[in-house]
Amino acid sequence: MYSEGNYKLVAKLGNLKTIVLLLKAINFQESATCFGTKNGLKLTVEDSKCMQASAYIAVDVFQVFDLKEDVIFRINLDILVECLCMFWSNINTHASSVTLHLFYEGDGHPLSILIEEDGIITDCSLKTQTPDELLDFHLEPENVVNKVVLQTELLKDILSELDTTSDLIELLLSPSPPFFRISTAGLAGICHIELPHDGELVDNFQCLSTTTSSYKLSHIKPAIKALSCANKVSLRTDTCGLLSFQYMVKTDEGHVCYIEYYISPVIDPDEGD
C-alpha cells in the first residue's frame, strides 16, 4: 500500500529513544510546524510570538529518508508524542525493536505515521494544516555579544531549583566579575546565583561586554526540560538581548541531533529614562 511512488516524503526511523526525548523537549505547545528538507526534518514550536523551539533530526539519523520536494506542514505534536510514548517501555531499552515509518503525500493529506513493535502496529494519522508564518529568530554572528558553551550538568541543578515564585529570571554576562550570574526575585527575596566562567564544566566563555537581560521564567522552563537529554549547551545573546540555547543531543548510534530555543527578553519599561 505504501510502496507506491505518490509520496513526497517517506521516512523510516529505527532507534527512537532520542527522537522521543527531542520531541518531548519541544512539546510545550500543541502544534508543531514540520519542515522536510534534504538535510532532514525540523520541527518548530512557538509560544506567544516570543519564544521558539526547534528540534533538528538530521538526515543520517533516518534509516530511510526519501524526499521528492521540500515539504512544510503543521501537525498536532501532543498526539504524536502520546503515540510514541505508548511504546516507551520498549523504546527506552537497548536493542529496542520499535520502528517508525512516516508517509506524507502532500498538501491536504494527513501525515501517516506507523509505529510497530513485534506485530503491534499503531497507525497515527495526523491531519496536517498549512502553517502560519513563523517568527524568524536568528542571531547574526556580528550581533552576538556573549557566547558560553558548557556542560549541561552545571545548569541542570541550578535551573531546576530556581525560585518558582519569581516571574522573571535575569541573566548577567560580563567579561569582568561577577562574569556569569542568574538572578530571580520571588516571594522569598532576591536570589543571585553566580556560576563559574572557567573550569571543567565550562568549555568556552566569550564575553565582549556586560549585558543584563530579563526573561520570563515560564519561557525558560521548556528549555530546562531539554537539559536532561543533552550533554552540552551553548548559550548566546545578541545586542537586543535575544537569548538562544543550543543543545547537542547524541543518539545511541552516535548521530547528532540539535534542539534550539530562542527566547526574547522582557523589555524593562524603566530602562532608558
Binding site: 498536532n76 498526539i79 502520546e82 506485530g119 502496529i121 499503531t122 497507525d123 497515527c124
Partner: peptide, 13 residues
C-alpha cells in the same frame, strides 16, 4: 478519533 488525528492500534493473529 480526535479533531486533529485518528489513532488506531492493531493487534494480529
Amino acid at each position: 478519533d480526535t479533531d486533529s488525528a485518528t489513532v488506531s492500534t492493531h493487534f494480529q493473529e
